[in-house]
Amino acid sequence: MNTTPIEIGRLLRSSLTGFVAGCRVDQPSLPVFGTLVRVPIEDQLEAFGLVYDIHMDDDGLVRQLATSHSLPPEVIADNRNNRNMPVEISIITVGRRKTGILSHLLPGHPPVSLDVLYRCTSQEVRDFTTTGRLGYFRHILRAEELPVGELLAAHLEQARAAHRESGDPAWFKNATRELITLLRDDYPTLMSVLNALSDLGPE
């Protein structure tokens, strides 16, 4: 698990409930699905979010190259490194840090274009996921257009590892129990989430 903040990319567009950042294809720090990230908005305000989509657009040239029988390595490197096509990372906002205090409320205003996106450190993941009573799950469960089950499974897997690192294996069990409670009246979503979680297996 990481211990220092890693810059991932910069914001392209945003709203209160989510934002999209752009980063280079060749970037070694490319986040994965479910990663907890943060964006400093102003001096004492940060937005926290979960990566729910990583999107790469094509263009006419890429389409044409894709049909080519063989692509030399220099052409692949040129396209990945020097063509103006950022990888778009979509993030759902799940909380904020205001004057140093973490909460699962939305930030008062969204981050703006070209703000820097950071991957949260293991400590930040632990701090965020133990603040309050896992209230940030409501943001995810409300977002019907997202692959909720998969996103929760991916996030919980990463958070479980962060908590295990600090000797807290019970966190995962508590988080699962909380999800069951939240979804007790929504059987289809509960089944989808539990199915995804069952695929995680033991750490």
């Binding site: 030399p72 390595p73 220099e74 052409v75 692949i76 490197a77 040129d78 990945r80 490194n81 020097n82």
Partner: peptide, 13 residues
């Protein structure tokens, strides 16, 4: 734009 063939080093522009 400068490319080195048979190499995966990025182009120089």
């Amino acid at each position: 734009i400068s490319l080195q063939t048979d190499s995966d080093s990025p182009s120089t522009i």
